[in-house]
């Protein structure tokens, strides 16, 4: 006889309390580099030069971060003298068109959201993180968010991967097959701007070059809680963070 029921009662609730409480367990997020004030402008330039994808921009003695470009190589975190400060939060979803230009789905979707995931040439990392949302720890069903296999029921199109040429038409067809109102999430650096692939002969360079993306989830890959934050931002239960201070004027 199986005692799973008893075990379950004994262990209690293990799911995260996010978004009711801030989840602070170790390892739920890789964190993110944040703008850092250095002693001199030279040091800031050296820190920026350390970044292989130009995600760090020197402005005066400060090094500012364009998180949507970051591929999490962690060169600015370990092993060089010009390190940036790290913040260990995970609520970093951004509106693609800038602050104030994003409209969440209407109230009927607050506690019922169906997500269609399209793998548009993903390496598997972002997909893996999306998959984690279904496990008991993150358990997105408790928030009324479900994955669906057909675009006919989907409210959100979650794109991962840089949109390879072979997936461009299927992605467009999926978008067309979805009923309105609908929102598009670009998850991971690849889906935002092509990431390490960039724009190439077989890579469209991100979902935004094909579809009108609404929300960006930076990270390579973003942790599950960052994706969860984005999904909550779609329903209007959370707000996308204002463009980070370091990004102002650059977008």
């Amino acid at each position: 006889m199986s005692f799973w029921f008893w075990h379950g009662l004994k262990k209690g609730v293990r799911s995260t309390h996010y978004p009711r409480k801030f989840e602070s367990a170790a390892g739920v997020s890789p964190g993110r580099p944040v703008a850092t004030e250095f002693d001199s402008a030279t040091e800031a330039v050296l820190a920026a030069a350390n970044c292989p994808v130009d995600a760090i921009v020197a402005r005066g003695s400060a090094a500012e971060v364009k998180l949507e470009r970051c591929i999490y190589c962690q060169h600015c975190h370990y092993g060089n003298p010009h390190l940036l400060e790290w913040n260990s939060d995970y609520e970093w979803t951004m509106a693609a068109l800038g602050p104030g230009k994003y409209q969440p789905l209407p109230g009927a979707y607050h506690r019922s959201l169906h997500v269609m995931v399209v793998d548009a040439g993903d390496c598997g990392a972002c997909l893996h993180e999306v998959k984690q949302l279904n496990n008991p720890l993150y358990n997105m069903h408790r928030l009324g968010i479900f994955l669906t296999a057909t675009p006919r029921f989907a409210d959100v199109l979650l794109v991962v991967g840089p949109v390879s040429e072979n997936m461009r038409v299927p992605l467009l067809k999926t978008y067309e097959a979805m009923p309105t109102p609908k929102r598009i999430l670009a998850v991971g650096a690849c889906a935002i701007n092509g990431g390490v692939f960039g724009r190439a002969f077989m890579s469209a360079g991100g979902a935004a070059s094909v579809l009108p993306v609404d929300l960006l989830v930076p990270g390579d890959p973003p942790p599950p809680l960052a994706i969860l934050h984005a999904l909550l931002a779609v329903t209007g239960r959370k707000n996308p963070v204002a463009q980070m201070a370091s990004l102002e004027g650059n977008s």
């Binding site: 057909t150 038409v169 067309e176």
Partner: peptide, 12 residues
């Protein structure tokens, strides 16, 4: 009401 072509798994 908008009409698009049949959904067939996104195949071209």
């Amino acid at each position: 009401v908008t009409r698009h072509e049949l959904w067939a798994g996104g195949i071209p």
